[in-house]
Nucleic acid binder design. Structure first.
Lengths: 291, 291
DNA sequence: ACAAAAGTGTTCGTCTTACACCCATGC
DNA sequence: GCATGGGTGTAAGACGAACACTTTTGT
């Protein structure tokens, strides 16, 4: 017999920044135990998020389940979820939206924004790696040094490496370490680890499933779509090719309306073609089928 | 406070057939409650599988967690896992390997093996769909009728459709239905649904992560590799292009040895290049990055 | 010689990537 | 006019699908 805890990473994008909904001044994710009245895990999760933050997630998917130890001998099971929301406005006291990159400043590779943090992190990782070639190659593969490219999906692995090197405060709770920790806001328990898992999942998923649209208003311009993707991926994208990338998948259709009043040529307003959700099935084959 | 149940789908491929390890004469998956002594969910799972089947899974990954109701008012949480194993030999009484396709005969699209079952299923689905265009298009999308191709990853969705149409015995337990059910071996509780989830996950995963090698001996020929993939995907693959598909990813290296004594030209024996696990990180970008 | 399986070459068309350029609006 | 963002054309190269063909063994 165990306690089952539901934990939510609720994400939104505002002003080109991906944000996560938090409680306790940005140190914890909304969460609470599964209760009698909850008809399913998802409804339980939604109930907790709404009670603690007065926000209602739209799209929700399960992330991961892991075992923990409660104070005392009791066991706990934590079931984490990723939710997506269209607005990042706060009205409820205690609930705050914080940028992902407050917690993972090294993850924002747009226009070298992460450069200063990386300049701090990399020497310390080099010190941690020492002469060990296995450690050196792990650092290189994860942080894209030494000619290897940056892979934005390895969010969790990078966090775990920093944890292992005792460069994040969370690791110091259990194992002492020397020197300073690395920039990036701390969270309680393993909540920052869960956030890393959520970011990694979302960064992977936007590439092959039309989930971005859960974060956008129902009408949007191509640039808004692109900037939302860039915020999530933490990478700048090539504008003309991004347009073709979207058009080729037939993800959007024109509404007939355009923006106006801003600088530059008015942009066409688009909407998501909900029909693709049915059509899909043709996704990725990649295997060389016969005939 | 709830009961936490661990459930395993342990898969192997023998004689070109993908198999799953079962108990109770093929009607249930190995499972048991999380206990005090289990250091983690995974070790708990491994303990139960070994106790019930005397088999030890190699690779293990989490599938999905869902809530259930135990007899009485008590709640349960089921955490399901996918495990891969190199051998499908049975020595322990009560533990049996069964082909996936006993449970999902319509999923084996190799050389039209599923044709007879589909001939049985499709008319019944057509009857269920009736005049409803939404239902018709769902059937078409999932079963590849009407010009749309077969997508082998939609295992769970197809099972759920059959469930909804009350064409599987599991659905009849809760909701009555008319006429016969469709071929395919039944399982207790929702174990067949979990198996469908596992198959879908594995079919998706083999395309972008080198997990097939967990199912093969340490030395193998290109044909063995291909046939293992075909067994999992339930599709026949194009031999020359499959070779290039593997070579291009640099997944394997030659051992220097060859087969002999069989019909045809001897094949080179290969082994998995473990180095790729480190190199990876360059996986799939797909987004049009700038510069 | 022939069957059987291994393995190679090559073509054609599509998708990706990069670069260059034109278009429409506000000020 | 010019700054700003919207949008199109296109050529080089990578990749995928399909087909034809050569190679090496056992019988």
């Amino acid at each position: 017999m165990v306690q089952a805890e539901l934990i939510a990473v609720l994400a939104a994008v505002t002003d080109g920044d991906p944000r996560v909904l938090t409680i306790d001044a940005g140190t914890a994710l909304p969460s609470g135990p599964l209760q009698e009245g909850h008809r399913s895990l998802q409804t339980g999760l939604r109930a907790w998020v709404e009670r603690q933050t007065h926000h209602a997630p739209g799209y929700v998917e399960q992330l991961y389940t892991f075992a923990g130890q409660l104070p005392g001998a009791a066991r706990s099971i934590s079931i984490s979820y990723l939710g997506l929301s269209r607005q990042a406005v706060t009205e409820y006291p205690g609930a705050e939206w914080h940028s992902w990159y407050e917690y993972f400043p090294w993850e924002d590779a747009r226009a070298n924004r992460a450069a200063p943090v990386l300049a701090e992190i990399l020497p310390r990782l080099a010190r941690w790696a020492g002469d060990d070639p296995a450690r050196q190659s792990r650092v290189a593969g994860l942080f894209g040094t030494g000619g290897r490219g940056w892979n934005e999906e390895l969010v969790l692995q990078r966090y775990e490496l920093l944890w292992e090197a005792a460069l994040v405060p969370e690791a110091r709770r259990l194992r002492a370490g020397e020197g300073e920790t690395v920039p990036g806001k701390e969270m309680t328990h393993d909540h920052r680890r869960i956030l890393a898992t959520a970011i990694a999942r979302l960064r992977a998923k936007i590439k092959y499933r039309p989930v971005v649209f859960e974060l956008l208003a129902h009408e949007f311009t191509m640039l808004e779509l692109q900037q939302t993707m860039e915020a999530l991926a933490g990478q700048t994208l090539h504008k003309p090719n991004f347009r073709r990338f979207i058009e080729q998948q037939e993800l959007v259709e024109e509404t007939g309306k355009s923006t106006s009043g801003l600088a530059g040529r008015p942009a066409k307003l688009l909407r998501f073609r909900a029909a693709v959700l049915e059509e899909r099935g043709v996704s990725g084959t990649k295997l060389p089928l016969v005939k």
